[in-house]
Computed example of a mutant assay.
Amino acid sequence: MVGFVGTACIIAAYAYLTLSEKPNPFILHGTNLMGAALLTVSLIVHTNWPSLVLEGFWAAIAIFGLAKAFRSGRKLQEREA
Rank of each mutant, 00 (worst) to 15 (best):
A13P: 01
L54Q: 12
H46M: 06
C9Y: 14
T7W: 00
R71M: 07
S20G: 04
E78M: 11
E21Y: 02
A8Q: 11
S42A: 14
A12W: 06
V5H: 09
T7R: 14
G6W: 05
G6D: 02
W58A: 01
K75Q: 12
T31E: 09
Y14G: 03
G35H: 06
T7I: 04
G6I: 03
F4C: 05
I10S: 07
P50V: 02
V2Y: 06
L33T: 00
G73M: 02
M34L: 15
F64P: 02
L38F: 14
L54H: 08
T18K: 07
A60I: 05
I11K: 15
A36G: 04
A69F: 06
I61T: 13
Q77R: 15
T40Q: 12
W58N: 13
L38A: 06
I44L: 12
A15P: 03
V5P: 07
S42N: 15
V45P: 04
K22R: 14
F57S: 11
A59D: 09
W58T: 04
T18I: 06
P23K: 07
F4P: 10
I11T: 10
A12Y: 08
P50N: 12
P23H: 02
N32H: 00
G65T: 05
W49Q: 12
A69L: 01
V53F: 14
L66S: 05
L39D: 05
S51D: 14
A81D: 05
T40N: 08
L19V: 03
A62D: 09
G35W: 09
S51K: 13
A60V: 05
A12Q: 00
T7Q: 15
T31C: 03
